Computed example of a mutant assay.
Amino acid sequence: MLWVDKYRPKTLDQVMVHQEIAQNLKKLVTEQDCPHLLFYGPSGAGKKTLIMALLRQIFGTSAEKVKVENRNWKVDAGSRTIDLELTTLSSNNHVELTPSDAGFQDRYVVQEIIKEMAKNRPIDTKGKKGYKVLVLNEVDKLSREAQHSLRRTMEKYSASCRLILCCNSSSKVTEAIRSRCLNIRINAPSEEETVKVLEFIGKKENLQLPPGFAARIAEKSNRNLRRAILSFETCRVQQYPFENNQAIPPMDWEEYISEIATDIMKEQSPKRLFQVRGKVYELLINCIPPEIVLKRLLHELLKKLDAELKHEVCHWAAYYEHRMHLGQKAIFHIEAFVAKFMSIYKGFLIATFG
């Protein structure tokens, strides 16, 4: 088992980061009925860890007994029937799913599937809370229609169902949904908090950490706790005992994007654009989010770029990121950004060197 799972806090009392939030959540579900909740904050901050610990606080150990299902639904969409396939994680008391996986059909997921789940109370409560919890991931990626439908579901089935919503950015969630939830901001952990967690894991694994080693991993992880723990485990696999000057390996996908940036800088041509498209597609099919790919690619290109071009390149990166959120096929918008960058950079080289 990976350390990131092995040492994930099981209860709110075990949470090392965001202890104040954990204790407030414990107090909330102990003293009163749990409201709809919206957890938001950057990736790797600990949102899912807090949600799972909260479910255990509400339902006990039964919340950990989950099964993964790939379920097919037939949904009536006016004059036609749509087949939808979604992966769900469920226990007797909760269901977790990501409605945005259905793409532009997400509103049917909310209108039919979530509504169907919300109707049904848990079969066997054994004296525990008499409601079911639906955990919805990436609600900031839902279309406006899906979010409007979700608001109606929250109102209509609040007696038998509680929604726990999880997203990176609350600004992309409609005000109507935000106002019906208790909003909980989960900040990225500080470097000091990350070091504390890494030293705790090192102690549990009986590892000797050189002075400053955990701090270097924390700094490299950019306040992403999940990434810090994965990097720590990678270092342990690659070399132990640790050395003072041991290199912290970057993520494979980051190295790959760095190679793509180098390719773009070396040659600006239709042939190179086609090659880059294939590499970007490789990242996307390996589940690297398109926003992360575009952001990291921009970061790598800016490191190699003249200062006078940086503002223009950042402008076009923001433009294509916005277009990517409006459209469906992320690959088109990332490729368009690469093509635009090649055009700008080639024009600059011609103007400078003739």
Results as ranks from 00 to 15, higher is better:
N120W: 11
L150P: 00
M251H: 02
L209G: 04
R107G: 09
S90G: 06
A22T: 00
R152C: 05
D140Y: 10
R56C: 00
D5F: 10
H299D: 14
R296S: 14
A22W: 00
K279D: 06
Q57A: 02
L207V: 10
D76I: 08
R178Y: 00
L294A: 03
S343Y: 14
I288H: 04
E69H: 06
M154C: 06
E20V: 09
E335I: 05
E85H: 06
D306Q: 02
I21G: 03
V75F: 04
T87L: 11
E155D: 14
E191R: 08
F59K: 05
L230V: 15
K196M: 14
T87E: 15
E255A: 08
I344F: 06
Q57E: 09
P9Y: 07
S100W: 01
Q105W: 09
H94K: 06
P189R: 02
E69I: 12
L182T: 09
Q328S: 15
T11C: 04
S269F: 13
K10I: 11
Q23I: 13
E145K: 10
K47A: 07
G60L: 03
G202N: 08
S169A: 14
L305A: 15
S258I: 07
N222F: 05
G41L: 07
R236V: 13
G202K: 05
K203T: 12
R8E: 13
N120I: 14
V139K: 04
V66W: 03
E112N: 13
Q32T: 04
T262E: 15
I264H: 11
E145N: 14
E64Y: 14
A307S: 15
E312L: 09
I164D: 01
Q57T: 07
I257C: 03
I177C: 01
N245H: 09
K48P: 07
T262F: 12
I257K: 02
A336Y: 07
E96A: 13
I82D: 03
M1H: 10
E85R: 11
Q147E: 03
S143H: 03
I201P: 09
K271Q: 10
V17S: 02
F348K: 12
I201M: 04
P289G: 10
R185Y: 09
A53R: 01
V75E: 05
R277H: 10
I257S: 02
K203A: 12
A214N: 02
W316V: 12
A218F: 08
P289N: 04
V95I: 15
L55R: 05
S179F: 01
R216P: 07
P42W: 01
Y131I: 03
H322P: 03
R296Q: 14
E64C: 10
P241E: 05
N137S: 07
R144A: 15
K67R: 14
A118H: 00
T194W: 02
I344L: 10
S90H: 09
Q105M: 13
